[in-house]
Amino acid sequence: MKKWSKWFWVLTMSIMAFSVQSCEENPPIVPPVVEGKTSIDLNFSALWNGQPLTFLTGWFEQPSPQKEYVQFFNFGMIVSKLRLVKEDGTEVLLGDGYQWIDFKKQRTKFNYEVPVGKYKAVRFTLGLDSAINHGDPNQWGAEHPLNGNLTGMHWGWAGGYIFQAIDGNYKDSLTDKYTKGMSFHTATDVMVRNFEVPVGTSMGAATFEVKEKATTPVQFNYHINRYYQGIELKKGSVSHSEGIKETALMQKLLENLKVNSAFEIPTP
């Protein structure tokens, strides 16, 4: 009886397993194994004094004697001619060279296929060539970085793109009850800036190597506190890159990016 019972359960379980299995659709045809592509994952990070930038939480102390405090609401940028520089000085364009980076939305990591080799720098333009800047924003595909409806980084009527948008609030002190607005929108042809960011630190240049059929991570840090170096927000917390005062303020902010080495690609 015991033996019969054992075989009963084995048979029952087998039928059940078969029944369940037979309900599945035909297994998908497995494509042939594709070997890994040769690529980089370019990852942008916004940092404040080395710590990841957060949005709508906490207050960051301004690196100025006034000790103002800032809070971020939005931080995006449009770059063009984004490219790697090989050890021998030749350049490799990343995709079509355009990218929209949005730190709040964490649209910060981009995969690009690139040739194997050693690379020593990243070059890019913050902003766009005049023809593109004032061209039809509807010419771009729905998901292209220059599609103004996707990014919101286009000043419809006024014409032209916003190359970098930083919005938030500031306070004179942490005990200040009321916040004031902060809005820095980089735009217009005269605010276009080119950057070369070497791999490594000021202590020494370096390279990173892209190996065949592997994805190499490349970290790109934006030290946003260096953008604010020496800026007194109570004297000017708004610039839309127009008008005498706001143009001067934006030029100072952009100068800070270069003078204070706000961009960094750490040695791998």
Binding site: F73, G152, W157
Partner: peptide
């Protein structure tokens, strides 16, 4: 007005840019 209601759609669709 255009920051939040700009463009041909008279609307900002990026939530962080006034949407």
């Amino acid at each position: 007005c255009f920051h939040c209601h700009g463009g041909a759609l008279a609307q900002q669709n990026n939530p962080d840019m006034g949407g």
